[in-house]
Simulated assay, not measured.
Amino acid sequence: MWSLIIILLISYFLGSIPGALWSSKVLHGVDIRNYGSHNPGATNAFRVVGWQAGVLASVVDFGKGVLAAGVVASQIRIDPIPNLSVFGWETATLVGLLAGVVAVLGHMFPVFANFEGGKGVNTAAGMLFALTPVTIGITLAVFAVVLISSRYVSLASLTAAVAFPTLVAIRRYLFGAALDPSLLVFGILLALAIIAAHQSNIRRLLNGTESQISSFEPAQGMLGRGEL
C-alpha cells in the first residue's frame, strides 16, 4: 500500500509541473493565463506566444504522462493486487494507469500553479503511450488529421479521446492484440473526463465561435501592444 501511495504522490507532483505556464514565462515573459482563453495549457501557449513555447509545453506535458506511467510506476516495487485476475487485469498495467491518471489530475489541478491547470490531453496521451505505444500512435495520427483538416485543437482532442478506447477494443477483440482489458475501461473513463473538461469548447464548436489555429506565430494583438 505504501509503495502505491508513493507512486501516486510522485506522479501528482510530476503532473503538477506547469509546462505551458513556465515555458511562456521563460521564453517570452508572458503569463498566458492573462491572454487568449486564459487556460494555462499548451493550446493557449500556441495561440498567445507562438510555436516555441507551445511545442516545449506539449513535450513537457506529454513527458509527464510517460514518466508517471512508464517510469515511476515500474521502478517502485509493488506487490500484486489480489483478485485482479478475475477481470483479466495485470497489476503492472493497472498501477501504470493509476499513476498516469494522477499525473493528469496533477496537470489539471497543479500545486505549483494555484491548482489552476490545463485540460490534461497531452499528459493523458503520454500516459497511454507508455502503456500501449501502437494504439496511441494511431490515435495521435487521428488527432493530427483532424487538427490539420479542421484547425480546431479542441475537436482534434475530443476525436482522439473517443478514438483511443475504440482502437483498443478493435485491436483486442477483432485482431487479438495482447492488450490488458483495463486499458479499455480506463480509456472510456478518460474519454468521458476529457469530454466533460471540454464542455465550453463543445458549445463554441456548435455555435461556430471556437478559435482555430491559423498560425504558429504569436498573437498579433500582443505583438502590436509590445507585450512580447
Score class of each variant (00 low, 15 high):
A163Q: 00
L183G: 10
I188S: 01
A144G: 09
A163W: 00
F164V: 15
Y152I: 07
L183A: 14
A191I: 07
D180T: 02
S182M: 10
F175P: 12
S150V: 15
F143Y: 15
D180K: 12
Y152L: 06
V185G: 07
V162F: 03
S182D: 08
L167M: 13
A161N: 06
V142G: 01
L174H: 12
P181V: 10
V153P: 01
T166F: 07
R151V: 11
A156L: 04
Y152E: 09
V146W: 10
F164A: 15
V185I: 11
I148G: 04
L167A: 10
L140P: 04
L190R: 05
A141Y: 08
T166L: 09
A178W: 06
A141S: 15
S157H: 06
V185F: 12
R172K: 08
L174W: 13
L147D: 11
P181M: 15
F143K: 09
A156Y: 03
L192E: 01
L179S: 03
A169F: 15
V162T: 13
S150C: 12
A191F: 06
I148A: 08
P165L: 13
I170G: 13
V142F: 05
T166I: 14
L155H: 02
L192G: 05
A144C: 11
V185R: 03
A160D: 10
I188F: 04
L167R: 13
L140E: 08
F143Q: 07
A156D: 03
G176V: 14
G176N: 15
L167W: 15
R171F: 09
L158H: 02
L155Q: 02
V153N: 05
G176M: 15
V146P: 08
V168T: 14
F175C: 09
F164R: 11
V145T: 11
V153F: 11
A144S: 15
V162Y: 02
L189G: 02
V168Y: 07
V162M: 06
P165Y: 13
L190S: 13
V153Q: 00
V185A: 13
P165W: 14
V168S: 11
A191H: 00
F143E: 05
L183S: 13
P181S: 12
D180Q: 11
T166Y: 01
V145G: 12
V145S: 07
F186S: 02
I148C: 06
S182C: 13
S182V: 11
I170L: 14
L140N: 09
L183H: 12
L184C: 11
L192P: 00
P165H: 13
L189N: 00
S154Q: 11
R171N: 00
V145A: 10
R171S: 06
L155I: 08
S182L: 06
S150T: 15
L189C: 07
L140R: 06
I148M: 04
V162I: 15
F175K: 07
A141N: 12
R151E: 07
